[in-house]
Amino acid sequence: MADLLEELNTAAEAGELDKPPAPPDPPPAHEPHPAPVAAPAARARSLLAAHPVADGYSGLPWALRELPWHDFETGDCGLESDLPRLRAGRVGAQFWSVHVPEALSADRAVGATLEQIDLVKHVVAAHSEGLRLARNASETADAHNCGRIATLIGPACGAALGDSLGTLRALHSLGLCAVTLSGTSWAGPDGLTTFGEEVVREMNRLGVMADLSGASDGTAHRVIAVSKSPVIFTRSGARAVRDHPANLPDELLAEVGEAKGLCLVPLAAERTGSSVREVADHLDRVREVAGPECVGLSGTYDTAAVHPDGLADPSCYPLLIAELIERDWSEAELAQLTWGNVQRALRGADFTARAARERRTASTATIELLDG
C-alpha cells in the first residue's frame, strides 16, 4: 500500500512539471514602474512654461522706427519678433534697446533717445493685451503673472546722457533701466574719469543698471569696483570660446562672478558662432567661470546681427534649452539662466537704489567741475 501511495505522489509531481509556468506576481503598489523620461524638446517647453526667457536685448524700437508700418500682432511686416513668435518662444520679459547710431551728435543722440522711449511706450500701449511696461523685478513678475510680456526700456547709449546727470535722471523718470557705458569721454580705454565714477554712483542711486558690453576692459574693471549694484553685459560671450572684442576673457568673467554681475550671451553669429551648439559652448563657459547665477540670454533680435542656424527668431528658444538639457544642465540652472538671474539683477539694482537714496541726495556734479 505504501508503495502505491508513493507511486501516485510521484505521478502528481510529474504532472505539475507539465503545467505552464505561472505569470510573475505584479509589483507591489508602492513600487510603480518608472515613468518614461521625456524628450529634451518636451522638457524644454515644460521648463519654459514655468521659467520663461528674460531676453536681455531687443532692437525692436529702432527696427520699428525704420518701418513705414508694422503689425506686431501677426508679424506680417518683416520683423524677427512679434507677439506670436515671442509667445511661441516662451519669452516673459525683454529689454528693448533705445540705442541710437554712434554717428549722431551728442545733442541729436539725446533727442533720438527720447523719441525711441516715446515709441516704446506707444507700441506697448497699442498692444496692451500682450505687452506691459516694467521698471523693476516686481513689475516684471507682475506682468508675467498677468499673462503679459514685460517690456523694460534700455539700454540707452552713454552718449544719450549728454554728459549730464540731470539728463540721466530725466531718462530714468521716463522708465530707462540701463545705460551702456562706452563711447563717451568719461568711460574710455583707460577706465572711468572722476565724472564717470559719479555717473555710476548716480545710476546706483536711481536703480539704473550699468551695461558694460562694448566697454573697454579698463572701464569694466573700474565700474565693477565702483558700483554697488550688479553690472550687466547685455551682449557678451566668452572670449576663450570665440575671440571677439565684445566677448569677455576668463579673468573678467571670474570678476563678474565674484561681483554677482550678469553676462547675457547673445544669439549673434559674429560673437558666439553660427550654430546652436556653439552658442551653448559660450553658455557652458560662462557658467563654468562666472557661475550659474551669472549667465543669461540675449536674443539680439531685430538688430543687424546675423543669428545662428536654428535660432532665427525668438520662437526658437526651446531649441537652445533642449541643447542645454542634453548637456546635463539641471532644472535649477536652467531656471536661473532663463528667468531667475535677470530677476536677481533687477532686485539688486532696486535694493541698492533704496539704500543709496537714504544716504545721499541727487548729485549736482558736472563734467566741467570734476574733469575740467
Rank of each mutant, 00 (worst) to 15 (best):
L133R: 04
L133A: 01
A134L: 11
A134T: 13
A134W: 07
R135A: 14
R135V: 14
R135G: 15
R135T: 15
N136E: 13
N136M: 06
N136A: 11
N136H: 09
N136K: 02
N136W: 06
A137P: 06
A137N: 05
A137S: 15
A137E: 15
A137C: 07
S138V: 12
S138T: 13
S138C: 00
S138Q: 13
S138R: 14
S138K: 12
S138Y: 08
E139T: 15
E139H: 13
E139K: 12
E139Q: 15
T140Y: 02
T140F: 09
T140P: 03
T140K: 04
T140G: 02
A141W: 05
A141K: 11
A141C: 09
A141P: 05
D142V: 08
D142A: 14
D142N: 13
A143M: 09
A143I: 06
A143P: 03
H144T: 02
H144S: 03
H144W: 14
H144L: 09
H144K: 01
H144I: 05
H144Q: 14
H144E: 10
N145Q: 15
N145A: 15
N145M: 11
N145I: 01
C146V: 02
C146T: 11
C146Q: 15
C146N: 14
C146F: 10
C146H: 14
G147K: 03
G147F: 01
R148N: 07
R148A: 09
R148V: 00
R148G: 01
R148I: 01
R148S: 10
I149M: 07
I149R: 12
I149K: 10
I149Y: 03
I149E: 08
I149D: 04
A150R: 09
A150K: 09
A150G: 02
T151V: 12
L152Y: 06
L152P: 00
L152N: 03
L152V: 10
L152H: 05
I153A: 03
G154T: 07
G154Q: 08
G154R: 02
P155M: 03
P155G: 12
P155T: 00
P155S: 09
A156I: 00
A156R: 00
A156Y: 00
A156K: 01
C157F: 01
C157E: 12
C157A: 11
G158K: 09
G158A: 06
G158M: 06
G158E: 09
G158I: 06
A159V: 12
A159P: 10
A159I: 11
A159E: 12
A159T: 14
A159Y: 01
A159F: 02
A160H: 04
A160S: 15
A160V: 05
L161A: 00
L161H: 04
L161F: 08
G162R: 08
G162N: 11
G162Q: 10
D163S: 14
D163F: 02
D163Y: 02
D163A: 13
